[in-house]
């Protein structure tokens, strides 16, 4: 479904379905590009409601409970995604689908640092 969505965006809108670019562009991009981006974000926001309607149960999740941790995580993810021109969707799905060498480097880099971070946080004393 994630792949189909990325294809919908390409076929109908001719754009990359990168969530970081869509998020930031919905607020700061050219006016002609803001509408579909804001609508995309509304669709993301509405997704749990559709899941609830389809399955009859609300999605379950467990979010880390450290508030300082989540703030640092948000800052790093936002800063890194914009500096690095993309996140998991832009580089990981759309970029790899385009066989972009930049995206391959980005994906290998963020997978490595994410795995290392989890290792340090969970397995080092």
């Amino acid at each position: 479904m994630i792949g189909l969505s990325a294809v919908l965006v390409m076929l109908f809108l001719g754009r990359i379905a990168g969530i970081s670019g869509i998020t930031w562009g919905a607020m700061t991009g050219p006016l002609s590009e803001r509408g579909w981006r804001a609508a995309f974000l509304l669709g993301l926001l509405a997704a749990p409601l559709l899941v609830l309607a389809l399955t009859g149960t609300a999605p379950e999740q467990t979010v880390p409970s450290s508030m300082p941790g989540m703030i640092v995580a948000g800052l790093l993810v936002g800063f890194g995604a914009r500096l690095g021109s993309g996140c998991t969707s832009g580089h990981g799905v759309c970029g790899l689908a385009r066989l972009s060498p930049r995206s391959l480097v980005a994906v290998l880099t963020f997978m490595a640092t994410a795995i290392l971070t989890v290792f340090v946080l969970r397995h080092l004393p």
Partner: peptide
């Protein structure tokens, strides 16, 4: 950017 993004992803488990 990708390296910092990965560290944040590894802390919070969330991407955008």
């Amino acid at each position: 950017g990708a390296a910092l993004f990965g560290i944040g992803w590894g802390i919070g488990g969330y991407c955008p």
